[in-house]
Design a protein around this nucleic acid. Structure first.
Lengths: 258, 258
DNA sequence: CAGTGGTCTAGACCACATG
DNA sequence: ATGTGGTCTAGACCACTGG
């Protein structure tokens, strides 16, 4: 904890519309941290609903009796933790954090994604064939240049983006992938249509990183927000590699269990 | 990527002592991001060695022709990614990122921690008996109040703190833990001394979070830096739970493989 | 066009660590 | 006593979005 700063807290007030909860700066902690706590409290207590837009920064800063710089220091942390999102020229919004999804391994993530009471939806961003580059070829144990199917998706829980994934399949093993998949946006369906009843997770790698601009846009985060990155490989019953998947997950809303 | 800002970049220069690499602000990206890149380059090229102290912020800011605020925006990101650490009243230092350790599961983390060529050291922070609280009792399947052994450690690679862990053992199963452990600071030794030859990982949970003040101090990070959190349980050959371990890892320097 | 967030400046005071 | 990082202010300009 960073101790600190003002001997005589001056400001005070409340975000317009939430006068029920007043902000009273103390002298024992940085003001931006107190604003951070204040906004979190507003969210936790339902004053700020998921998806709601906050008043403008200038307005809030004035109400709280601080500078925009100080306010934004608090917002920065809140954004990095996934509680807020901002869209330039538009506003700052509350990002409902899906109180952490449990992701069990053993099969594919998308299957084990069990969200208690949450509605999981899928958006297919990209689906096309392409030649395998060196990295893809290495992961799938095929020759570079071989045709592979690239599938990029965005998965949401209750409308909030949770993770994006890019999967790559050897086209030879799944020649009729597209129509089979598109019927219900289900990879499992596509597998079944090709007689792949069983597959097993060969290896899963979890690492940490920071959202790129594209990832941030998809997940409705600020660029630089910390994320999980996963990389996993599936084999079919014959021991052939049928899928290489990479995922990008919001750090604060997922638990992995193995 | 945030496009932006200055039409006429004014500043320019180099951090004192690294005149070999000059900082030339462009107009197509935020200055703080360019400083971020600049410092990363200095580190990558060996101008800034691990552990080295940077010149004062005022000095650097002046040299680069920016405000301290702008400089600190870059430093903030660098700290959150684990490249820099700062100690109040002392200075800013380069944190050598151990190019990501691989951590394989299946046994205990500490055993599978294979760092290519890195010297792994252990610092025992705390070792004592205590009564189990509700959470501990639940995790270890014992009665609340039963005696447990708490062991907190800090592990470093090449002197750089990588992760802290707190392990809890039922004292009944390991009555002679302390001397057996302390001989080589090895939990495995303590197990062997009690005839626990085999144990298996019952469950591992990986989540993301942000370093608390204590964690930050131990890991030499700034508070609020994103981290991995792990929680795992080990059983002995009889199916009894012998260990509940929680870990806190620097997000950017660890890969988990399962 | 007006309003929003993103960036930057130029100053200032503070707590802390060190010599 | 000095130098460090941590915090804060008051103002400004910009690019973007939407009506």
């Amino acid at each position: 904890m960073n101790k600190s700063t003002r001997l005589q807290p001056t400001g005070g007030g409340a975000i317009s519309g939430f006068e029920g909860l007043v902000f009273r700066p103390r002298a024992d902690a940085p003001i931006w941290q107190q604003i951070y706590d204040y906004v979190l409290t507003l969210i936790d207590n339902g004053y700020l609903q998921p998806g709601a837009q906050l008043p403008g920064e200038v307005h809030i800063a004035e109400k709280l009796g601080v500078t925009r710089v100080t306010l934004r220091r608090a917002f920065l942390q809140l954004q990095q933790e996934g509680h807020l999102t901002s869209r330039k020229g538009v506003g700052v919004f509350v990002r409902s954090l899906p109180s952490t999804l449990m992701v069990r391994d053993g099969s594919r993530f998308s299957e084990s994604l069990k969200a208690d009471g949450k509605v999981l939806t899928t958006r297919t961003l990209h689906l096309a064939e392409e030649p395998a580059d060196l990295e893809i070829a290495r992961q799938l144990c095929i020759e570079p240049g071989t045709a592979v199917i690239r599938l990029s998706r965005l998965r949401c829980a209750d409308g909030q983006p949770i993770y994006t994934s890019t999967k790559l399949f050897p086209a030879r093993l799944l020649p009729n992938f597209e129509p089979a998949y598109l019927r219900r946006q289900s990879v499992t369906d596509a597998y079944l249509a090709h007689g792949v009843q069983k597959y097993r997770r060969l290896e899963t790698l979890i690492s940490g990183g920071f959202a790129t601009a594209e990832e941030a846009a998809l997940l409705q985060l600020s660029p630089g927000t910390p994320v999980f990155r996963t990389s996993s490989i599936n084999e079919n019953g014959d021991g052939a590699r049928v899928e290489w998947a990479r995922g990008c997950w919001l750090l604060t809303s997922v638990n992995f269990i193995f």
